[in-house]
């Protein structure tokens, strides 16, 4: 197990290269508007798999946009939490994409999406115990070695838990960070969704993660559902503006972690670009407030947890 810590690769790109500003997910609907209006925004993020095509408009526009803005590449198909070995071809394609666009950040999910030959196109949950920990660490090592890039691992939004789990999710994540040297992508919406769904305290969740490892934040909107007992079940829909409870939790995170590159994610019901830009600017306002508060009250970590689950 200790072999993991020594295998942290020398990274080519620095994962903290993204500015501590607001960014938005780049959508084809917005390609032309971004190029023509040159919005004031910290960075763009793309889903790696959408750009694993040979040519055409996606590369045409991304190339031009990347010339002007910092870029985060976010994978959704590596299946790091999978029982199956990592797909070597897919990893090669990722390496080519990173080589071509030289992103300031690369991130993936603590989840699985493939089994055997079949790709399930969802971020699926895994139990947290010694065997899954070893497997995830092994996969993260492989990714970092192949890509020669420190990766950020994103905490998942989940709807079920496993009887087989012997560790808390945050304990599991902290251990992966320790053993692989990877960083964290703190998805604040996922924290909120998972904590509501599993009746946990979202502030305590954030407090349990290694603060220095967090390299980026995601914010998004969720949808509401109920479980079989009628209790709240939140769905990570990425189809609505960031909820107030998630903004509150974001503020709590900023007080503890300081300003961080913060992405507004929207994958459903995509609004006009200025709507997303306004959310990114809202994140920047909260970052400035957090810095001002810390200066006024040097005792730091001053906001209490106002977010219930």
């Amino acid at each position: 197990m200790n072999a993991h810590a020594s295998s942290v690769p020398k990274t080519v790109g620095a994962t903290c290269g993204l500015p501590a500003r607001g960014g938005v997910g780049l959508k084809p609907e917005h390609f032309r508007e971004v190029l023509s209006t040159k919005p004031d925004i910290g960075f763009f993020e793309i889903h790696a798999e959408n750009y694993m095509v040979d040519g055409g408009p996606f590369h045409h526009y991304l190339g031009r946009i990347r010339e002007r803005y910092p870029l985060s590449i976010h994978g959704v198909g590596l299946s790091i939490g999978g029982e199956s070995p990592l797909d070597a071809d897919h990893l090669d394609q990722l390496a080519r994409l990173l080589d071509r666009y030289q992103p300031e950040s690369f991130s993936e999910h603590l989840a699985w999406a493939s089994h055997g030959e079949v790709f399930l196109n969802d971020l699926l949950p895994l139990p947290y115990h010694a065997a899954t920990l070893a497997r995830v660490c092994d996969h993260v090592d492989q990714v970092q070695n192949r890509l020669r890039h420190r990766m950020l691992l994103e905490n998942p939004a989940t709807y079920v838990e496993f009887a087989a789990s012997t560790m808390a999710e945050t304990e599991f994540i902290a251990e992966v960070v320790l053993r692989t040297g990877c960083g964290l992508l703190l998805d604040v919406n996922n924290v909120y969704v998972a904590c509501v769904n599993h009746h946990r305290n979202p502030c305590a969740y954030i407090d349990s993660l290694p603060p220095d490892a967090v390299g980026q934040i995601h914010l998004a909107g969720f949808a509401r559902d109920v479980d079989a007992a009628g209790d709240s079940l939140l769905i990570d829909s990425h189809g609505a503006p960031v909820a107030q409870a998630v903004w509150d939790l974001y503020r709590y995170a900023l007080d503890r972690l300081g300003p961080l590159p913060t992405l507004i994610e929207r994958d459903n019901d995509i609004p006009s670009f200025p709507v997303l830009l306004a959310e990114a600017h809202q994140a920047e306002r909260l970052m400035r407030d957090a810095v001002a508060n810390a200066a006024a009250t040097p005792a730091a970590a001053n906001s209490s947890c106002g977010v219930g689950a």
Partner: peptide, 12 residues
């Protein structure tokens, strides 16, 4: 699969 409130995990 489990749910914190003991509800049917099938729904989740």
């Amino acid at each position: 699969l489990t749910a914190w409130n003991g509800s049917d995990p099938g729904r989740r």
